[in-house]
């Protein structure tokens, strides 16, 4: 299906904010970015999908709760279950949790404030479809911006995530939202689905981002696609 460039789709929901930046990051990483629309059922032959940040459906009911039932999500869920790389950033992470592709949920920040800052993270798992271009233990800095970014799950789930190495990234210095065990990102059992609260797509260009540390997320996926084709 892919010819040369890896084709990565970015879904736009009503209220998505970071879909353009995600597409830009994919292009910066050397991929072909494909705009996908939430009411479409087709993935148009993309090899991977990004669910971007923002406030899909105004965050009504719960963050990501309504977007989860968008027509395109049926195809995304089917793809994710058959190994297609899927990345949810911020609101996209919330959609993945609401879809039960990832365990747990994201709740209101413990301090109740919207947080927007450059955040140091440690990459804990460098073997997912979206993190192979990092090394385990590598520290990166990318922006974090959310008000519902507190990752919660019951203790048993948290213990299982830790034991199975499914914590992808952890907050360093300061936990910006009260996430349990400083969790900034997690993956599914097969490592193709990743949810990340911080915004890797905002750190791909020295002109506009604090670093270019986020680029590795997208180059990782492209490398994964080349490896599997």
């Amino acid at each position: 299906m892919s010819g040369g460039l890896g084709r990565i789709g970015v879904v736009t929901f009503p209220g998505s904010l970071d879909d353009r930046d995600a597409r830009r990051a994919i292009r910066a990483a050397g991929g072909e970015a494909v705009a996908l629309w939430h009411r479409d059922r087709e993935l148009h032959g993309v090899d991977a999908v990004v669910l971007p940040g923002g406030f899909s459906y105004g965050d009504y009911l719960r963050c990501g709760a309504i977007a989860r039932f968008s027509p395109i999500m049926e195809s995304v869920l089917t793809g994710a279950r058959t190994g297609m790389p899927v990345l949810g950033i911020c609101n996209g992470f919330q959609v993945l949790c609401e879809s039960h592709l990832l365990p747990g949920a994201l709740t209101r920040n413990d301090h109740l404030h919207f947080v927007c800052r450059d955040q140091r993270l440690r990459i804990e798992n460098a073997e997912t479809s979206w993190t192979t271009d990092y090394t385990a233990g590598q520290e990166i800095t990318v922006p974090v911006k959310n008000i519902d970014g507190g990752y919660v799950a019951d203790e048993r789930t948290l213990d299982a995530l830790e034991a199975e190495g499914r914590v992808v990234a952890r907050y360093l210095d300061w936990n910006p939202n009260g996430s349990r065990r400083d969790i900034a990102g997690i993956t599914n059992q097969t490592g193709n689905v990743v949810g990340l609260m911080p915004h890797a797509e905002h750190a791909v260009d020295a002109l506009t981002g604090p670093t270019t540390d986020g680029l590795g997320v997208f180059t990782s996926a492209l490398r994964t696609l080349v490896g599997s084709s």
């Binding site: 709740t107 209101r108 920040n109 109740l112 507190g150 919660v152 019951d154």
Partner: peptide
Amino acid sequence: MLKPEILDPQGQA
């Protein structure tokens, strides 16, 4: 309602 074990910062505020 949030489950009893889930922190409710809004309720606390």
